[in-house]
Each structure stands twice: as structure tokens, then as C-alpha cells.
Design a protein around this nucleic acid. Structure first.
Length: 110
DNA sequence: TAAGTGACAGCGT
DNA sequence: CACGCTGCCACTT
């Protein structure tokens, strides 16, 4: 259950990502305090498609803005979703990633 | 119970 | 500046 709580935390943050924005696994991990467990964030995303409300996992990319998980969506679904939100994707990576970058540690700082 | 894998990130060469 | 290796933590076999 402990890890389930961690997963839930990840889902919460991901769902808070504004439309047309993207963030990185490390940013979420760091926000949750598990900076060293950036991989766990990706693992949580694995269940994102199973979790209750839809988790915009397509808004979560790696530090390079690369859609490393597009394969897990099944085809170019991730690109389509991002493109549908105004996020331009080129060569499987987010364009203007730096501008669209949404850091929970800052946006949700409080 | 133990070993291997993985939607990442950082440091070293 | 580009490429390679190691570290982390949880899940799967």
C-alpha cells in the first residue's frame, strides 16, 4: 500500500499538469521527495492507463523532453494527444520543451 | 529467496 | 560537445 500511495501522489501531480504543458519524471520525483527514484515515476505511469481518472501520462516526458514512453501508449498516441493540446512534437521530442516545461516544485511550490 | 529489468537522471571520460 | 557507465527503488519471473 505504501508504494500505492506513492503512485497516487504521482497521479495527482500529473493530473495537475495544465493542458498544453509537460513535465519530467525527475521533476515529479523530486517534488515527491524521491528524487533518486525518477524511474519509479515512470513505473507509476505504467499503471496510469489503469488508474481511475485518466492520467495525462503523455504530458510526462524525460529530462530531454523526449517521448520515451510513447511506445507504451501504443503507437503515436502520445504525439497525437500532445499535438491535440497544442504541444508540438518533432522527432519524438517536445518542441519548445523549455517553454512548455511545468515544474511542480515551482508551480505547486506554495 | 534471488536475479534481472526498466516510461530516468547525473557524472565521468 | 557527444557517448558511456553507474546509481535508485520497485516490480516481475
Amino acid at each position: 500500500m505504501d508504494r500505492a500511495d506513492f503512485y497516487d501522489q504521482v497521479y495527482q501531480v500529473v493530473r495537475l499538469i495544465p493542458k498544453g504543458r509537460v513535465t519530467s519524471y525527475g521533476a515529479i520525483a523530486a517534488y515527491l521527495g524521491t528524487k533518486g527514484s525518477s524511474r519509479m515515476v515512470g513505473y507509476a505511469m505504467n499503471d496510469a492507463g489503469k488508474v481511475h481518472p485518466q492520467v495525462p501520462a503523455h504530458r510526462v516526458v524525460n529530462r530531454q523532453g523526449l517521448l520515451t514512453g510513447k511506445f507504451h501508449f501504443g503507437g503515436n498516441t502520445m504525439e497525437e494527444l500532445l499535438a491535440g493540446e497544442g504541444v508540438k512534437v518533432a522527432d519524438d521530442k517536445v518542441v519548445n520543451f523549455k517553454e512548455l516545461y511545468w515544474d511542480p516544485s515551482i508551480e505547486l511550490a506554495l
